[in-house]
Computed example of a mutant assay.
Amino acid sequence: MKKGLFFVLLCAVCLALPAQAQKFGYVDSEFILGKMPEYQKALSEIDKFADKWSKDIQDKYVEIEKLQKTYLAEEILLTEDMKRDRQRVLSDKEREAREYNNKVFGYQGLLFEKKKELMKSPMETVNRAIEKISLQKKLDFMFDKASDFVMLYTNPHHDYTDYVMEELGLDATSKPNKSTAATTTVPPVAGSPDNKTTTKPK
Rank of each mutant, 00 (worst) to 15 (best):
K66W: 00
L67T: 05
L67D: 08
Q68T: 06
K69D: 10
T70R: 10
T70V: 07
L72R: 08
L72S: 09
A73M: 07
A73D: 13
A73L: 10
E75P: 02
I76L: 15
L77A: 14
L78P: 06
T79N: 05
E80Y: 06
E80H: 04
D81M: 09
D81N: 13
M82E: 15
M82H: 09
R86V: 11
R86I: 07
R88S: 15
S91M: 14
S91N: 14
D92A: 15
D92T: 15
K93V: 06
E94K: 14
E94Q: 14
R95W: 09
A97M: 08
E99S: 08
Y100N: 04
N101D: 11
K103V: 02
V104A: 13
F105T: 01
F105S: 03
G106D: 01
G106F: 04
Q108A: 07
Q108G: 03
L110H: 11
L111N: 01
E113K: 15
K114L: 06
K114M: 11
K116D: 10
E117K: 14
E117P: 06
L118V: 12
L118A: 05
M119Y: 15
M119E: 10
M119S: 07
K120Q: 13
K120A: 14
K120L: 12
S121L: 09
P122Y: 05
T125E: 08
A129Q: 05
I130H: 03
I130A: 02
I130N: 02
E131M: 09
E131Q: 13
S134I: 00
S134K: 06
L135A: 14
L135P: 01
Q136M: 08
K137N: 04
K137I: 01
K138L: 02
L139A: 06
D140G: 05
F141H: 00
F141P: 00
M142T: 05
F143G: 03
K145E: 08
A146T: 04
A146S: 15
S147F: 05
S147T: 07
F149D: 03
V150S: 14
M151R: 09
L152N: 13
T154Q: 08
N155V: 05
D159Y: 06
T161I: 01
D162M: 09
D162R: 12
Y163L: 11
Y163H: 10
M165E: 03
M165D: 00
E166R: 09
E167G: 00
E167W: 03
L168C: 02
L168G: 01
L168P: 02
G169E: 00
L170D: 01
D171M: 01
S174W: 08
K175R: 12
